[in-house]
């Protein structure tokens, strides 16, 4: 479904991603784990077209999207929930959802019902300005906003960042629900134990290179991963 082939990404002179290849197959949950600064978010930004690789290629559903502008990709079915949620804080919850449905021309009632069923809290806060939501609610809104476009592949960047453990559990169970409902998931996480538990496959990223890959269960057992990311 998504195929990344030997991409090199630079921030000016800094070589951030040093030739990474991996793929996500339809129906999978794939996790990218790694420490801060390993390049996880850069990879997602490069896939979604906010950045472009200097070399290498990216294809999605058989189409080459290496140099496609970010705003066109949502129409292909590729949604990106960025790090730090990046919801529109000065707009209402409803308006944020409207923006999520921007490519749909009109906001359908069924879609709203779908996200309000997943996240009933958002329905209560529908007309509230998004900046007044709690961190967990903001994450829910960011995910809902992405769902409004009916993505085939959803890329989630650190969905658990800064959330209370109970909310982390809730977010992860919703990710699994979305997956069961047919959405393919590419998950970037620092919370490696959680991510590996739900992932079909995972890749470990270290300073711009993939150092390990395998099924979620395999990696969770691997000594290197346990030492580095799972606290022994």
């Amino acid at each position: 479904m998504l195929k990344i082939d030997d991409i090199h990404v630079y921030y000016g002179a800094i070589h951030a991603i040093k030739g990474i290849s991996f793929q996500v197959n339809e129906g999978e949950i794939v996790a990218l784990i790694g420490a801060n600064g390993a390049g996880k978010s850069t990879i997602l930004k490069t896939i979604s077209g906010l950045m472009h690789p200097r070399s290498g290629s990216i294809s999605f559903m058989g189409e080459n999207i290496t140099h496609t502008d970010a705003y066109k990709l949502l129409r292909h079915g590729l949604a990106h929930v960025p790090e730090g949620r990046r919801i529109f804080l000065q707009m209402s919850v409803q308006e944020n959802l409207d923006m999520g449905a921007f490519t749909q021309k009109t906001v359908s009632k069924e879609d709203l019902d779908m996200v309000f069923q997943l996240f009933p809290r958002l329905k209560e806060r529908r007309n509230q300005v998004a900046g007044t939501l709690s961190g967990g609610e903001q994450q829910m809104l960011a995910m809902s906003r992405a769902l409004m476009s009916h993505p085939k592949l959803m890329m989630l960047d650190e969905p658990s960042m800064g959330l209370a453990p109970i909310l982390v559990d809730q977010i992860f169970s919703i990710i699994q629900d979305l997956h069961k409902a047919g959405t393919t998931i590419l998950l970037v996480e620092q919370n490696a134990s959680k991510a590996l538990k739900i992932a079909d496959r995972a890749y470990v990223l270290e300073t711009g290179n993939i150092t390990l890959s395998g099924t979620g269960a395999e990696l969770a057992k691997s000594d290197e991963v346990r030492k580095a990311y799972l606290g022994g």
Binding site: Y71, K72, F88, G100
Partner: peptide, 22 residues
């Protein structure tokens, strides 16, 4: 729709692009 898109771009250009806004 266009007016809201303008506010979205004004607040966060990258996030607006991720919504499919040109």
């Amino acid at each position: 729709r266009m007016g809201k898109a303008m506010r979205a771009v004004s607040e966060d250009r990258d996030a607006a692009q991720l919504m499919g806004i040109n």
